[in-house]
């Protein structure tokens, strides 16, 4: 495996609830290499979303160490965490969270502009990201004018815009029909084949099967993974 972009070392996340400690995740050890496409499956309440929040620097572990792109999350200030999220990580949620008042290209350019990039270069980079997902012709349209599948492609373009090379997605195909959902998976597969990294949570095994690795969570713990057999060409 290539150098890990995400590393979990003996990680647990617990919450205090009604005077009791509830374990949402862990202990787990996990490495995800740059360029890998990983799917996480498991029943409700098994810790999938907690794992994704930790990998996305949206949360920090109670015990253990999470490293994202070489940064130990425990050691980062809130400001540094926010910067890591903006510069490295793109998120795709079931509600795609595209801003309805902005055009497609403006939506995709937004993370770059928030990070201090000037308007013209940000738009240029955003246009390239749209082209990579086959949405170049939709740049000046508004999200509400697009189909669900097209909006999804825009959300994926935004997640991978500019220097961002890690995409995290929680049930990204939830609202899509199966053919459109498959198209989104195909797109993620191609992006990962081109060196990007994607980690998705899904309940749909047909979508998970597009990934290089499928992880199963149960009661906060990872099921042992099989030895790799051959691997992807």
């Amino acid at each position: 495996m290539s150098a890990p972009i995400i590393r979990f070392e003996n990680v647990s996340r617990t919450y205090e609830h009604a005077g009791q400690t509830v374990r949402a995740l862990g202990p787990i050890d996990l490495e995800i290499g740059a360029g890998e496409f990983v799917a996480i499956m498991g029943p409700s309440g098994s810790g999938k979303s907690t794992l994704l929040s930790l990998a996305g620097a949206l949360d920090v572990p109670t015990v253990g160490r999470v490293t994202v792109d070489g940064n130990d999350l425990q050691g980062l200030s809130r400001k540094q965490l926010a910067q890591l999220r903006r510069q490295t990580i793109g998120y795709v949620f079931q509600e795609l969270n595209l801003l309805p008042g902005l055009t497609v290209v403006e939506n995709v350019a937004l993370p770059l502009e928030l990070d201090g990039e000037r308007l013209a270069p940000a738009r240029k980079v955003a246009s390239e990201a749209l082209e990579a997902v086959g949405m170049a012709g939709f740049a000046s349209r508004f999200p509400d004018d697009l189909s669900g599948g097209e909006q999804q492609r825009v959300a994926i373009a935004r997640a991978f815009v500019g220097p961002r090379r890690l995409l995290l997605a929680d049930e990204p195909t939830g609202a899509l029909d199966s053919v459109t959902g498959e198209r989104a998976m195909r797109l993620l597969r191609d992006q990962c084949d081109a060196g990007r990294t994607a980690v998705i949570v899904t309940h749909d095994s047909a979508h998970a099967a597009w990934a290089d690795r499928v992880l199963f969570l149960r009661d906060g713990e990872l099921a042992p993974e099989p030895e790799p057999v051959g691997g992807r060409p």
Binding site: S205, A206, A208, A209, W210, A211, V214, P226, V229
Partner: peptide, 8 residues
């Protein structure tokens, strides 16, 4: 699951 990945 491995079989499903191969088919995919």
């Amino acid at each position: 699951m491995e079989r499903l990945q191969q088919l995919t």
